[in-house]
Design a protein around this nucleic acid. Structure first.
Lengths: 211, 211
DNA sequence: AGTTAAGTACACAGGTCAGTACCGAGGGGT
DNA sequence: ACCCCTCGGTACTGACCTGTGTACTTAACT
């Protein structure tokens, strides 16, 4: 029989059922979407019995919320901690995502669930606000005259690139990065704390890869 | 009983079942999403029997595809026909949508269906490409040095504003319009008839009307 | 050892959804 | 008046999905 391996020594698939469930959620929700992924299939992939799953998460909704909470310490936030980059470079680095990035899971969840009251939707809103705040802080660091505005604008560019990449099935982040380079330079008076006029040449590097 | 009115004179709700079905689709798919709208509810709202619905559309998938096809002659395309505006004004007018605009149905469908092979997904791709082409044409008319790039960029801004408005529950089109104003001026040489390559001074001028 | 927490297997309740079958009835054109 | 097309109502099938109940097995801790 296709028993995976729960022999007398294989400790029966281990003790960390919760981790395996969340791992399977990341894979399946990303590949198939939330609504099209049933708990049966999820448990099969996680190699966990359904009973166990519902002992860890009282409902699928709760699992979805926890699944989103799992992305917090990864993805974009890593960009803001790179002290080897100037603030301006950090703002642009947010657009250099690996080509396999599918669709921001928060956007996907908000659209799929279609219920602003759903805990996952509210958490998505919080996350988006937090990302914009991070961008705003970095924009302020970079010397933007209106950091709030620039942060919000950059956040919009990221979301636009993410959703457009999905719909067109073609990487749209270079296009967004080109826009970002323009509005960043436009939002910083002359040069916040450097020699004036010398940001023209630097943009030619990472700001040109449009499409 | 709450019979709506199909009395001996109420002509039984008329002959146009197909129109009522599509009308109900627009309302329900917009308000509840595609996946969360069942055919039973849809038929009830359309005041149409299920039998009739499946005589007009062989499946729900086909209905969804037809529902998307219905948006063609409306929404954005109306902007491009406004001859009372200059090309540049027409590009900006694309961001002045009524505040009740929920989420581009093509984006919603592509995310909800989660299947690039679905006819509706392919049609969404075609539509997005067509919109970008329209923007590109207008950008060329406005004298942009790289109309393809500007058209693609503006399309990304529209989609970003649309999806972000949904997720944040707050109108993001003004933010997108501010970005659009900057990149449009940045992409048009000086006043649409000068030598390219010198986009330095033009960016500071009318690129401020943000939120 | 023995106890307890965690996990397993499997069946099943209860609901929803897409799609169909059957029959009846109205309405419009000719 | 005729016929035929369209629409209505309703019950139904089969699939799938979330969530639960029950009895059993294993790992870890003391």
């Amino acid at each position: 029989m296709p028993e995976v391996e729960k022999g007398p020594l294989g400790r029966r698939r281990g003790r960390g059922a919760r981790e395996r469930i969340l791992g399977a959620s990341q894979q399946l929700f990303r590949d198939q979407g939330i609504n099209r992924t049933g708990m049966d299939q999820l448990c099969a992939v996680a190699e966990v019995s359904k009973r166990t799953a519902y002992q860890h998460f009282t409902s699928k909704d709760e699992l979805v919320a926890e699944y989103l909470r799992r992305f917090d310490p990864e993805v974009l936030p890593g960009v803001f901690d790179r002290t080897d980059l100037t603030p301006r470079e950090r703002l642009l680095a947010a657009f250099e995502l690996p080509p396999s990035t599918p669709l921001c899971p928060y956007l996907a969840a908000a659209v799929e669930l279609h219920d602003p009251q759903h805990p996952a939707s509210e958490y998505a809103r919080d996350y988006k606000t937090a990302i914009a705040a991070r961008l705003t802080a970095t924009a302020r660091e970079a010397g933007a005259t209106d950091p709030e505005q620039l942060g919000e604008q950059l956040a919009l560019l990221i979301d636009g690139a993410s959703v457009r990449t999905r719909v067109l099935d073609r990487d749209s982040f270079p296009t967004a990065a080109a826009i970002a380079a323009i509005i960043i330079d436009n939002a910083i008076p002359a040069s916040s704390a450097q020699q004036p006029g010398d940001d023209r040449e630097t943009t030619a590097g990472p700001a040109r890869p449009t499409r």
